[in-house]
Design a protein around this nucleic acid. Sequence first.
DNA 1: AAAAAACACGCAAACGTTTGATATTTTTGG
DNA 2: CCAAAAATATCAAACGTTTGCGTGTTTTTT
Lengths: 340, 340
Amino acid sequence: MKPDKPTTIKEIAKLLKVSISTVSRALNDHPSIGLTTKMRVKKLASEMNYEPNQKAIQFLHGKSFIIGVILPELSESFFSAAISGIEDVAYKRNYTVLLAQSHDDAEKEKLLVTKMKSQRVDGLLVSVSKTTSTYEHFEVFRKLNIPVVFFDRIPPIKDIHYVRSNLETGTLDAVNFLLKKGHRTIGLVNGPDTLVASHERKEGYIRAMTSNRLKFDPSLIISCDLSEEGTVKAMDAMLNHRRKPTAIVTFNDYVALFAMRYTKSLGLQDIDFVSYANLPIINYMDYTPIASVEQFPYKQGKKAADILIDLINKPRNEVGTGQAYYNVIVESELVISKQK
Amino acid sequence: MKPDKPTTIKEIAKLLKVSISTVSRALNDHPSIGLTTKMRVKKLASEMNYEPNQKAIQFLHGKSFIIGVILPELSESFFSAAISGIEDVAYKRNYTVLLAQSHDDAEKEKLLVTKMKSQRVDGLLVSVSKTTSTYEHFEVFRKLNIPVVFFDRIPPIKDIHYVRSNLETGTLDAVNFLLKKGHRTIGLVNGPDTLVASHERKEGYIRAMTSNRLKFDPSLIISCDLSEEGTVKAMDAMLNHRRKPTAIVTFNDYVALFAMRYTKSLGLQDIDFVSYANLPIINYMDYTPIASVEQFPYKQGKKAADILIDLINKPRNEVGTGQAYYNVIVESELVISKQK
DNA sequence: AAAAAACACGCAAACGTTTGATATTTTTGG
DNA sequence: CCAAAAATATCAAACGTTTGCGTGTTTTTT
């Protein structure tokens, strides 16, 4: 067996003594090719294991059928779930996925954006890194009219397409759930005030309290830096509060774990925890939150990819003519843990 | 701002009134272009935000600078770590990564292989799905002389390149470690006998015992199906063994968790566990194995990608002329947990 | 001062495919 | 049986870039 170069349309044409264009059209079921020729061409093509050279095709009409995806960390289960959603719609709609992780490094992210550009991706899906503070590197894509859709971690700028989850409603549900269980003093171990996500949790918390005609006590919301030490410090404050909470909402599952481990080490067993994210690991924990706000990363990924591909195939938007931007909110939802 | 088409070399040439080839050579620092022209060209190019059209280049010399990666599940931390390794070398060596998950579905895997082929990847990195039992779909690549490197889950066929870990030495270390701690009766909750991985663990176990002049008791190795129920059943047998083990090696961290949870529920606290994989989650557990066999997925990914890219750039191997295959074993290593 | 070397640049082909315009053949209807 | 219509097939351009070869200048060498 020779080190074959892949079969080309040209060779098929030569062997069949027809023109190149005939072969091309035959393979694409063009109406102006006779049935018999079509058959002959297709037969030989499959015999020769012909596979159209996508590079040539992509080059020809300036489309790559590749979407670029830049996200911070695949090892975070949120993102690995999201990428599955992205992949699934991409493959369904005949695109392939060029993947890259920024590892939460703004510089790496910039570099990746350039790389994506030179690979001529048809569109870009981005969840920005934690350290990213400027956003001009995405402007190139705007100039080239290549759509960019942000998801989950979206930059604080105007006129962008994005998909994100709304934690406010999830938090509302969470607090309502705890209220219904009879809790009256509910703490919130929140994240840094700088995060939008912290703000949403807080708002949801407040809405739940006030809509139940309960007074909202700001001192029951304590921010932490999400580390174990930070969590412990926050929990200390929480447990020494004059109104000691009987239930606590934590910023995410890790904070919940830290907090639960700490309360347990103090011999406290009677605090109910509710958390966010619903990581798979909580299924393996000894003590788990009694409920979790699920953000549906798979769904978010799917939605984002769908929008991106829609944008790619949408008739060219004239920039300036009051472009519409997709701003999709995937509602979060409270999931009550199966009690073991 | 018009909906720009990207700048081409041609436009630069026209504006500068030089030939296309001059521009091309200038940009590539070809020696036969004068310094002044080079400067002028480069200046204008960057002003016009020129970015070479990779599609055209790739098409021209039939190289895509893309490596395809097919793996079962990104949500498994082994693979998400591996992909980071792959990515890192790929980017370092100027390749990009086309990613796809088979979700352990053999059919999907086949489809993906086809897709990768038509995208004309320069090479393929594969960890085969659990359900894959035939391997002809990879033969196409062999015919086209596109290198394929398997990693971790490698197919049982000859003449392939692969990178995998060797669990035998890790197991050896693990058992030795337990022996040194004074344990004399050590159990092994193993996986299904059909897995190579189970076999390696068993061999390591046996080697450790015999090399320490201890009699090897086959009844202390119990297979399970890796589910929670299966683990419990295996543990039951283990705990009712006439020689009740004081230490147990488990097939992986999940089995360890199940087993530990079960022993704890029985009020047993004095069994030492050693496990495999070293998942990040064990840092969050209440009871953790005292040591873990690490398989270095990041390193494996890196190594595999390096080999793949080497193969891509290696002068065309004439098939038939006694080709050499890379068979790399990444040794596993025992990691002793930091005691909290 | 003539020949040789060095330098700077341009021409045109090639990569594999699609596609609008055009040419050839077959069929149809009168 | 002929023109017109329908069916079938071909031609050639285009996509953006690289690169071997050729050619016209300048500079250096003897």
